[in-house]
Design a binder for these strands. Structure first.
Lengths: 135, 135
DNA sequence: CGCCATTACATCGTACTACGATCTATTCGT
DNA sequence: ACGAATAGATCGTAGTACGATGTAATGGCG
């Protein structure tokens, strides 16, 4: 167990990271071109694609974005002051703050998402090719 | 063209980001547990898995990690002062600095790479499931 | 073969973002 | 009803990538 990697596997790992970095660069550039920070873009997507019932709490956003609670809170605060999201205290639990998209946030996200759908289809193929050599 | 996304597609994008964030969190935690910064870990992998002939230049590292040249230079400098890599002026072109792994750097990378190989196999499956709904 | 544009890298100051530590408010268990 | 736990908010800090700028080495071209 824990066998060392072959040269091919090291290259496979490195190529995967390269592809990942390029995807992230694409995504960051696209977000900034649309006038958003990359973090705020991902926040909008996390809210829009939220799985559970109703709107996500700040804690839920922290889990989705893998951020500490207070980092998630700061991100939501910045997005709110940019008019992208709206905070509403959960009527069922006064400790919770639920995050909703504004019309602006929804519109900004839509254009970006179309671009990302295309880019992700490309990335998916590339990643499958690269990671095939991992076995 | 540029058709709006379905609800399922938004969820697919959001789930992909969630999986990606968790992979990156795993990777960052693993690197830090091994005493490396996440950036330095990725630098080691880029050098170890370098495709071209010989060792990569700082410029090549910038491209692989999608960093500006000077950011790549700073990263290499930090890693060098930590004894992970070694800089050698290219004998064939005095402007170039080629980056080599030290024994220390090679050893640190090996343990991390074993963990990442396993985690990436998991991630690959998850990503295929999630992105299947993108079509 | 000598000059200058180009390439490759280094240095310095700045900004963004995530985090640790700490504080407040609300809810829950008993 | 009261202490413990949960959910957020706030403040200061650190790491990292970047822009702007400076320096050294190379290569093309007359």
């Amino acid at each position: 167990m824990a066998e060392p990697l072959t040269e091919t596997q090291y290259r496979s790992l490195a190529r995967f990271r390269h592809a990942l970095r390029r995807f992230q660069r694409f995504s960051e550039d696209a977000a900034r071109s649309a006038g958003l920070t990359p973090s705020q873009h991902q926040l909008l997507l996390a809210v829009r694609g939220f799985d559970g019932p109703g709107a996500p709490s700040v804690t839920a956003i922290g889990e989705l974005l893998q951020l500490q609670l207070h980092s998630a809170g700061e991100l939501v605060a910045r997005a709110a002051s940019n008019g992208l999201v709206e905070r509403r205290t959960d009527p069922a639990d006064g400790r919770r703050t639920l995050v909703h998209l504004t019309a602006d946030g929804t519109a900004m996200l839509e254009g970006l998402s179309v671009q990302h759908r295309d880019e992700l289809r490309r990335f998916r193929r590339e990643m499958n090719d690269v990671l095939r050599e991992l076995d």
